[in-house]
């Protein structure tokens, strides 16, 4: 089995105020792993400790205890950082630079010769829809454009691990879709992506693994497929239901919801055949039957509310 791209083992971080006894526990014994090639969504409400965890991962903060490995190296190690593309939350920039100059600077910081990189930079700007703004200083960019240039710099050196803190922040719906397409492209190339986001329906489309934290504690982690398929229920759509059906079905744990164009019945998977036969024998038309899959948003809210 390949070594984890990201390994958090019992990581604790406590913020201490100078000249005060006040202690804020940002992370408490957080443990999770991300396998190479996975897209992992790092979720949590505001103040859950996501940015602290990412900062520890990048070597910006130091954990008080626990073991952290990034691509097999300690956080902050230049060998790991050489293979990481990182987009911080609210990406800040040098306002006096243009996008090509910023990307050339980042190439130099990565130890690569920026000379002869015009083609690479033009491709990246095209990818993030910033072509045509090469001469505009970043200080004059809109919030969405800044986010796009941030994504471009994160993808600059063909990283093996891409860490994105709120990548769709400040983007309009089409911008968010484009970011998702970029992430899907990274996934297809076998890159590992670790992203924090609040836009769960979009994250759900591409992620393989989910890590949920709340108030510094790990709430749940696992493969998305396993987590969403845990509800063993079936959704049946019919044009109508016979008299007395609703009462008897509800008594057996089913849920009947009336809509404008028919009825939606949620039943336990073990009772699906019996329910469909009952509807058919009463002359009702069954229009659809699907295994019920909860959404990532439902799962997230359930886990956070439980806390």
């Amino acid at each position: 089995m390949a070594a984890a791209a990201i390994k958090f083992q019992g990581v604790t971080k406590v913020y201490k105020r100078v000249f005060s006894d006040e202690r804020i526990r940002a992370l408490a014994e957080v443990s999770f792993e991300v396998v190479p090639g996975e897209v992992c969504a790092f979720l949590g409400p505001n103040g859950a400790g996501k940015t602290t965890a990412i900062s520890i991962l990048m070597g910006f903060f130091f954990a008080d205890s626990g073991e952290i490995r990034v691509l097999g190296h300690p956080p902050g190690d230049v060998r790991a950082k050489a293979q990481i593309g990182f987009l911080p939350e609210n990406f800040a920039f040098y306002k006096y630079l243009t996008a090509p100059k910023l990307l050339r600077l980042h190439l130099a910081l990565a130890g690569r010769n920026p000379a002869g990189s015009a083609g690479l930079i033009a491709d990246l700007l095209q990818k993030v829809k910033l072509a045509g703004y090469e001469n505009l200083k970043i200080g004059k960019y809109s919030r969405g454009m800044v986010q796009r240039i941030g994504i471009a710099q994160a993808l600059l050196c063909d990283p093996q691990l891409v860490i994105l803190d709120e990548p769709t922040s400040g983007l309009d719906p089409s911008g968010r879709r484009e970011v998702l397409q970029v992430l899907a492209g990274l996934k297809a190339q076998g890159k590992t992506v670790f992203l924090s986001s609040h836009i769960l329906p979009e994250v759900e489309q591409i992620c393989d693994r989910v890590v949920i934290i709340d108030r510094g504690k790990l709430v749940r982690t696992g493969r998305l497929e396993d987590m969403l398929a845990s509800g063993n229920r079936v959704e049946i759509a019919a044009d109508r239901v016979p008299d007395g059906f609703e009462q008897s079905a509800t008594g057996e744990g089913a849920v009947v919801e009336r809509a404008a164009h028919g009825v939606r019945i949620l039943v336990d998977a073990s009772r699906k055949r019996e329910t469909v036969e009952m509807l058919w024998s009463a002359g009702c038309d069954v229009t659809a039957m699907n295994p019920l899959r909860s959404t990532l948003e439902e799962l997230f809210l359930k886990e956070v509310d439980r806390q």
């Binding site: 070597g59 950082k81 050489a82 990182f86 911080p88 609210n90 800040a92 920039f93 980042h106 990565a110």
Partner: peptide
């Protein structure tokens, strides 16, 4: 203050 250090230090810079 501006946070530009985060993107710079994410590069392989000691």
């Amino acid at each position: 203050r501006s946070g530009t250090i985060l993107a710079v230090m994410a590069r392989p810079v000691r």
